[in-house]
């Protein structure tokens, strides 16, 4: 964690860069994009999309929108990351809305946006990343609480701890094929728990 003085310097630097960008020097915003690209990508966009390629596109779109709307931004004495995060989250919701079946997931994300606060107003990128990671894990953990223990275990072993299928099957004392089915059902149940009840019902009836 950086000192208050360093934090103040970072904020002052952001303010100057924003002013230059608002005056027409679009290149002035480059350092800010480069600084916050990582927490936006790995902390905000990718955990809400899952697909790396789409996440990269959304990150680029976030930058484009920020460039377009930089003139409307008002400096409030805190990091511009807050604003960029807002744009990125909106873009993520847009992506989810493009998929009809994911409409409820988009709705869940939109509701989450309204109810959660920005993790931090610090300009410290490391702190930002840590806070975003904490939020993301909290979201997942909340959804997983609704699952059965076996489902939670399957997800924990395979997706969180990244253990190979064979090791997961052995740990749960099932065959490889049966573990695949267990994980399949676990992910489906997770999705239902996270905010897509119609999606899960549709899959169940298939």
């Amino acid at each position: 964690m950086i000192s208050e003085q360093a934090e103040a310097q970072l904020l002052e630097e952001e303010r100057r860069l924003i002013e230059r960008a608002q005056a027409g020097d679009r290149d002035a915003i480059r350092p800010l994009f480069e600084r916050f690209a990582e927490p936006l990508y790995s902390g905000v966009i990718l955990p809400r999309l899952g697909d790396a390629a789409t996440a990269e596109d959304v990150l680029k779109d976030t930058f484009l929108t920020a460039i377009e709307k930089i003139g409307q931004f008002r400096w409030q004495g805190r990091t511009v990351y807050v604003w960029l995060r807002q744009i990125a989250t909106n873009k993520v919701i847009d992506v989810h809305r493009r998929t009809a079946r994911a409409g409820r997931l988009a709705h869940a994300l939109a509701e989450e946006l309204e109810t959660t606060t920005v993790p931090t107003t610090s300009a410290d990128v490391a702190l930002i990343s840590a806070e975003e990671s904490r939020i993301n894990r909290g979201r997942i953990a909340t959804a997983m609480e609704a699952l059965s223990p076996r489902y939670r275990e399957a997800i924990r072993l395979r997706l969180i701890e990244e253990q190979p299928r064979e090791a997961c099957a052995a740990a749960m004392k099932v065959s490889l094929g049966n573990f695949d089915v267990l994980l399949f059902r676990a992910v489906r149940a997770f999705r239902k728990s996270f905010g897509d009840p119609m999606g899960a019902e549709g899959e169940d009836s298939a």
Binding site: A37, S42, G50, A52, S133, N136, R137, L159, I160, F194
Partner: peptide, 20 residues
Amino acid sequence: DRLLLDAAAMIHAAHQPRQL
């Protein structure tokens, strides 16, 4: 299948953040 994959990827990404 894509929706399920996205859900799995979201869980994975939350715990195994990928650096850009």
